[in-house]
Amino acid sequence: MKVFWASIEYKYNGNPMKGGFVYVFVKANSETDAYERITSEFQNLKLSISVIEFLTQYDKSTKWNSASETKHYMDIYNSASISNSCVFDTFYAYEHE
């Protein structure tokens, strides 16, 4: 299995004016499998997906802006590689006016 990651914009079910974005990592056999796991997890969280900005296999050699960011995302990658669930980064929320 591979670890995929996605950048997702979401909305709260029942309140389309509130939403946010989050990175999510998931172990899956394919992009289709990853998509199904992610959408199921969002349904369980009572969130709806507005936009999937990208969904792709995570490249472990990705360099971020700092060593601490690179370590942070590798830690999430490593957690996802041993989990059967989605592993989320920080949820960032916003409200439309």
Rank of each mutant, 00 (worst) to 15 (best):
M1G: 12
M1S: 11
M1P: 06
M1E: 09
K2C: 14
W5C: 08
A6Y: 02
I8S: 07
I8V: 14
I8Y: 08
E9F: 07
Y10L: 06
K11Q: 13
G14F: 14
N15H: 09
P16M: 10
P16K: 10
M17L: 13
M17G: 15
K18Q: 15
K18C: 10
G19C: 03
G19K: 06
G19Q: 07
G20F: 03
F21G: 08
V22L: 08
V22A: 04
Y23L: 09
Y23R: 07
Y23N: 06
V24F: 00
V24H: 02
V24M: 02
F25Y: 12
V26G: 01
V26Y: 08
V26E: 01
N29C: 05
N29P: 00
S30L: 05
E31R: 15
E31Q: 14
T32Y: 12
D33L: 04
A34C: 05
Y35Q: 11
R37T: 02
R37C: 05
R37F: 05
I38H: 05
I38Y: 11
T39E: 14
T39M: 12
S40V: 04
E41M: 02
F42H: 05
F42I: 06
F42Y: 11
Q43G: 04
L45D: 03
I49Q: 15
I49F: 14
I49A: 14
I49H: 13
I49L: 14
S50C: 02
S50V: 04
S50R: 06
S50K: 07
V51G: 00
E53I: 05
E53H: 10
F54N: 09
F54L: 09
L55N: 00
T56P: 01
T56W: 05
Q57P: 13
Q57N: 10
Y58N: 00
Y58T: 02
K60H: 00
K60S: 00
K60C: 01
T62R: 05
T62L: 10
K63S: 08
K63C: 11
K63V: 11
N65W: 11
N65C: 02
N65M: 06
S66Y: 04
A67I: 12
A67S: 12
S68N: 10
E69M: 14
T70S: 07
T70A: 03
K71A: 13
K71E: 15
K71Q: 13
K71F: 11
H72C: 02
Y73E: 01
Y73Q: 01
M74T: 09
M74D: 09
M74P: 00
D75W: 04
I76S: 00
Y77L: 06
Y77I: 03
N78E: 11
N78C: 02
S79L: 13
A80T: 10
A80M: 13
S81M: 14
S83K: 08
C86G: 04
C86K: 03
C86H: 02
V87T: 08
D89F: 09
D89R: 07
T90W: 08
T90Y: 12
T90N: 09
Y92V: 11
A93E: 15
Y94Q: 04
Y94D: 07
E95F: 10
H96L: 15
E97H: 14
